[in-house]
Amino acid sequence: MSRFIVRLIINAVALWLTTLIVAGVSVVPFGDGDTTAVVLTYLLVALIFGVVNGVIGNLIRIVAFPLYILTLGLIALIVNGLLLLLVAWISSLIGFGLEVDGFWWGVLGAIVLGLISWLIGIVLKPLVGKTR
């Protein structure tokens, strides 16, 4: 359970940094926008992203496996951008959360989010490894 929480926090921090770096990706907090609301919004969006990526993302990767081989994995950029757009759509249904300005902003945001999450994961690998 604690590994899940650490991964959730890593994804939330990576999402926060992505919104600072990529102009077309932003997060709209719920409520009056105080610090607690902003943190909870990032955690909620990171949770939605984890569920979408874990369930739908894995299903797409299994079904589209021949396309991954054919394109040497470049289709993953498109799939990850679409998954980020899906997270933005789901969070818009609840009235707050992730906003992506377009498909290519989604692709760029997914690339930056993946790189930042990977880098934070490398730095915190001893912490994540100890929580098993």
Rank of each mutant, 00 (worst) to 15 (best):
V22W: 09
G31F: 03
I9D: 10
V38F: 02
D34W: 08
I5T: 13
G31D: 05
A12W: 06
V39S: 01
L40I: 05
T19D: 13
V22R: 08
V25I: 13
V13M: 08
N11H: 12
T36K: 00
I5A: 13
I5K: 06
T18L: 12
V28S: 05
T36D: 03
V25C: 04
F30K: 00
D32G: 08
I10S: 06
A37L: 05
L17E: 10
F30E: 00
V13C: 04
I10T: 12
L8M: 13
W16S: 02
D32R: 04
T36Y: 03
V27R: 00
I10N: 10
L43F: 08
S26P: 14
T19E: 14
A37T: 09
D32F: 02
A37H: 07
I5W: 14
S26A: 15
P29H: 03
V38I: 07
A14V: 13
I5N: 12
V25Q: 07
L8E: 09
I5V: 15
I21K: 07
V27P: 07
V27S: 01
T18S: 11
V25G: 07
A37M: 02
V27T: 02
T18D: 11
A14T: 15
F30G: 02
S26H: 04
G33F: 01
L17Q: 08
G31R: 03
F30T: 01
Y42T: 08
G33I: 01
A23H: 15
G24L: 11
G33T: 08
T36H: 01
F30S: 01
V27H: 00
W16K: 02
N11S: 15
P29M: 06
D32C: 05
L43S: 08
V13E: 04
L20W: 14
P29G: 00
I9N: 03
V6Q: 14
D34Y: 02
L8T: 11
V6R: 10
G24V: 12
L17H: 05
A37R: 01
V22H: 08
G33V: 00
V39F: 00
T35Q: 04
I9T: 14
V27E: 00
P29D: 03
I21L: 13
G31L: 05
V6F: 14
S26Q: 11
A14S: 15
V38T: 07
L8N: 05
V6T: 12
L17S: 06
V22G: 08
L20Y: 11
V28H: 04
L40W: 02
V22M: 04
P29I: 03
I9W: 06
G24Y: 10
D34S: 02
T41C: 09
D34L: 01
L43G: 07
A37F: 06
V22Y: 13
V25P: 14
G31A: 06
L40H: 01
A14M: 12
I9V: 15
D34A: 03
A14I: 13
A14P: 15
I5R: 09
T18E: 13
L20N: 10
V6D: 09
V22I: 15
L15P: 14
A37Q: 08
S26W: 08
L43A: 04
T36I: 10
L43R: 03
A37P: 11
I21N: 04
I21E: 06
T35W: 06
D34I: 03
A14D: 12
A23W: 13
I10Y: 03
V25Y: 09
N11I: 14
I9Q: 02
A12E: 07
A37G: 09
